[in-house]
């Protein structure tokens, strides 16, 4: 017996998806680039991915018995679908070749499907990795979870030729949910159930995680809001300090004592 802790990373995964949804209200502009009336918010794609991932895990054995290599076959199917769509559009469409392809409803439907798959893939992989306790799938999930906001940022910057503002507090919460997902996945991977044998180790790791994340959050928050904390003096009136570079420099400066402490400790440990 023991306490199953598998639900905890699910909470953080859902929290992260929620934060991304709040962080990028113009996500719908991104999906509108694929299809004008595609008005599914990111949280919708994320929930869908999470549910499908859990269902797939539950029925994976039966699915694999019926269909060998289902993921490979799905990929092949998508490629064939695109090929068929292009051929049909070219054969039956109107106008010149370029117009036939660009205006094709079939091809647009394919793009919408691909967009849906890419948007729901991170949470699909995330939920599957928690249930299957698979580090390989987890790594892909993290990559996907970072690519979603990356895509939004690149798209929006290219569109508006400017950098949209990101609220520091919401950014902090989003970062902490991702960190929480990573750490709690590792708890599940290492312990799965918490009982008397691992209870002490788990408690210690939990305390350490909270402590270090707390310090990290304070450092990150100070880096973003240091301006309001110190009086304006001529010596720090460089414009770079108000940009992301300045914030990064402050963050690194705040981290440097910890870095040097780690180096000093490792040298002392090495003797």
């Amino acid at each position: 017996m023991g306490l199953r802790i598998r639900f905890i990373p699910f909470v953080f995964l859902g929290g992260y998806a929620l934060c991304i949804w709040l962080m990028f209200p113009s996500f719908l502009e991104v999906s509108a680039g694929i299809y004008r009336d595609l008005s599914v918010p990111y949280i919708g794609w994320a929930l869908m991915g999470g549910v499908i991932g859990s269902v797939y895990y539950r029925y994976r054995e039966g699915l694999r018995k019926r269909i060998k290599n289902p993921i490979n076959k799905l990929g092949l199917g998508l490629v064939l679908w695109l090929g068929a769509s292009i051929l049909i559009s070219v054969a039956l469409g109107e106008g010149d070749l370029q117009d036939r392809v660009l205006d094709s409803g079939l091809i647009r439907a394919w793009f919408v499907t691909m967009f849906g798959i890419f948007m729901s893939a991170p949470t699909f992989l995330g939920s599957y990795s928690i249930l299957a306790r698979s580090k390989e799938v987890f790594s892909l999930a993290i990559l996907g979870l970072i690519i979603v906001p990356l895509t939004c940022m690149i798209y929006l910057q290219a569109q508006s030729v400017s950098v949209p503002r990101q609220d520091p507090l919401l950014s902090l919460i989003t970062a902490l949910t991702l960190f929480g997902f990573v750490e709690t996945f590792h708890w599940v991977y290492k312990y799965d159930r918490i009982d008397v044998q691992v209870g002490n180790l788990f408690a210690r790791q939990l305390i350490s995680t909270i402590l270090f994340a707390g310090v990290g959050s304070v450092i990150a928050f100070i880096a973003f809001s240091w301006r309001s904390m110190i009086p304006d003096i001529a010596a720090v009136s460089f414009y770079e300090m108000d940009t992301i570079f300045g914030t990064a420099a402050i963050g690194l400066a705040l981290l440097s004592p910890i870095a040097l402490l780690a180096i000093v400790r490792s040298f002392r440990e090495g003797k």
């Binding site: 400017s162 950098v163 001529a234 009136s237 460089f238 414009y239 770079e240 992301i244 570079f245």
Partner: peptide, 22 residues
């Protein structure tokens, strides 16, 4: 300009940083 109450900043690198001016 500082005495007149403006917030004066000196840019020592590249004006491409203006892209992220809020």
């Amino acid at each position: 300009l500082d005495d007149e109450g403006y917030d004066v900043k000196v840019l020592i690198s590249s004006s491409s940083l203006l892209l992220s001016e809020e």
